[in-house]
Design a protein around this nucleic acid. Structure first.
Lengths: 343, 343
DNA sequence: TTGTACGCGTTATCAC
DNA sequence: GTGATAACGCGTACAA
């Protein structure tokens, strides 16, 4: 016969002949009890099989230790790794995470946020791009975004500009005749746009010939393949016999391009240099390990949670002083040189 | 001046001159109010900016709508996709998920479970392998496991036996001289062991020559590469000039092997046939699209949550009748024929 | 159809 | 060092 409903302070109190208050104190301020009484209570907890009830604690003191997360998907390694790293901060900060997969419509995402607020989350981490930072800021709850438009809210991002700059520099070091950057058309206020800026700035400074390809690759392998195929043909007709240094905005696309080239030539020809972005597993597992600009996902995740924790702690003070202006942290990328540039 | 603490039923009640009860009823049994009064209250909610408070609801009626998840990692596509699909069932069942990354030590995982129980989760989905199903069953809370040892708890698994059988059959259809199965040594009570069983059963039934390689590949690319390299050498020395059909237990490892072969020969030689397991992105994005046995992750996730929901609903009845014996659902795999077998 | 009174399991504020 | 008592915000018999 289980069905023994949960043991409460009331029962512990009755059993030990203390008051509920004293039991509570045992947990929250044990030093205020005599060692002897601490032991008495400890024994009773053991005997009765007490399990703490966070829900009651929350109602009583308002601290849920919940952080909400809205993330576009877990399909891309970047996002699943980021979520993994965020969840791992539990060991440090002891916040629990309520996760929604977003990036659908604004309406749905607003519903998610309402649901999260109903659970009295103390803070929110946003990775999806659906809702503007202006609207997010109006929620008046601590918010940190990662790698998205962040004008009105705090954020942590990779130094995309430096990443683009370094990628271009690495390609230029190999005396490429022309540098190329392949990306998807994106709004200029997203951090990822910095990759393009860094790339072009380097080329201009060094008076290096370059060209930008903006293509809509879609979200399936097939559409990506088709686009990349046509792009490769364009490259081959217009720039044959020239040393080509190609910076692709992510490793998945870089791998598609690499495979197309290798399936055509059986190897990566000497006049091709290739670098991707993200340091995702595919860059290492490709037929030829792909050079890439790696994001420090662990650091980004940690900084994001830490930044959020600071703001949440501020909220708990009697006179919270919200941030005057959003804080934007920037994490440098790390260059991985592999076989597509170092042959 | 925000700092307007949360609007409660009390304030709505005062504002509308109803009682708190009536406000509560507006949400839980609106038909019991006149349309006119419904409107009055709706207007008040709007005007005062009421936001529901799930925590209070939980304390009052005991239903948290929380499901706990313990998952080994999000690094493997299989797990991140599974988590993604599980989270997506929110749209159907409206349960929220508290996620922990587990598979460390039993001690840590028990701590996670205690924390989850403290939040009064209604059910638990376990994908990590750390804690025995016997111990899990003793928690007396609805539990469903996915693709792990499941003797004493309900579970949803891929039909690994059929997967192994189909893989062998596909290779045999190409008149391979010898079939190989490459796997990591694993306990026989995990579902994944079925891949090996199905494979060997097929070979025995068809009197097909075969060999099993059990190797510890480790968890990094480097160790996997080294192991696979030595394995390939063994294959080449002992079975040269024979048609080799290789069934690798996952796509990541299959891809490593494929790359080794292609880097050696420039192509996949006619005497090699290769099939992986999981239908993970790498199988499609490889230099040669890899045939694979795909798990129906979406179905598995849905069935798991549904199975859990049924058990949780049973718990809510006045006289819960817990399952006499665990339910084990099995989802068939899907064979993907790609270029490593269909040249 | 609506209201009263109490319970959910803790924490916080006073007293003693 | 310990104990009453009142929150916290909502649900629900039971009453009207």
């Amino acid at each position: 016969m289980r069905e023994k409903k949960n043991v409460t302070f009331r029962e512990i109190a009755d059993y030990t002949h203390f008051s509920k208050t004293t039991i509570s104190r045992y947990f929250n301020n044990p030093d205020s009890l005599t060692l002897e009484n601490q032991q008495t209570i400890a024994d009773a907890l053991q005997k009765l099989g007490y399990k703490e009830n966070k829900v009651a604690q929350i109602l009583a003191n308002g601290k849920t230790e919940f952080i909400g997360i809205i993330i576009p998907d877990l399909y891309h390694h970047y996002y699943s790794e980021m979520l993994s790293q965020i969840l791992s901060t539990y060991e440090t900060f002891h916040y629990k995470f309520l996760v929604f997969i977003g990036n659908k419509t604004e309406e749905i995402e607003r519903k998610y946020i309402q649901e999260l607020l109903a659970y009295k989350i103390e803070g929110l981490i946003i990775l999806s791009h659906t809702i503007s930072s202006r609207e997010l800021a109006s929620l008046s709850i601590p918010i940190v975004t990662i790698e998205r438009e962040d004008k009105y809210v705090s954020s942590v991002n990779t130094d995309n500009y430096m990443g683009g700059y370094q990628a271009a520099a690495l390609l230029a070091r190999h005396h490429c005749d022309v540098l190329f950057h392949i990306n998807a058309p994106g709004s200029e206020d997203t951090p990822a746009y910095g990759r393009l800026l860094g790339f072009t700035d380097f080329c201009r400074e060094q008076q290096q010939e370059y060209q930008i390809f903006l293509r809509e690759f879609g979200h399936t392998y097939e559409t990506t393949l088709a686009q990349m195929q046509s792009l490769l043909e364009e490259l081959e007709t217009h720039y044959q016999n020239q040393k080509k240094g190609i910076f692709v905005s992510n490793d998945t696309h870089a791998n598609v391009l690499l495979n197309l080239i290798i399936r055509k030539y059986g190897t990566l020809p000497d006049d091709y240099f290739l670098i991707g972005f993200d340091n995702s597993p595919i860059s290492r597992e490709a037929i030829l390990p792909i050079s890439t600009v790696g994001q420090q996902i662990d650091k980004i995740a940690y900084e994001a949670v830490q930044l959020l924790v600071e703001q949440m702690n501020e909220q708990k003070k009697r006179k919270p002083v919200p941030l005057e202006t959003p804080v934007h942290k920037v994490i440098p990328p790390i260059l991985f040189r592999r076989e597509t540039t170092e042959k």
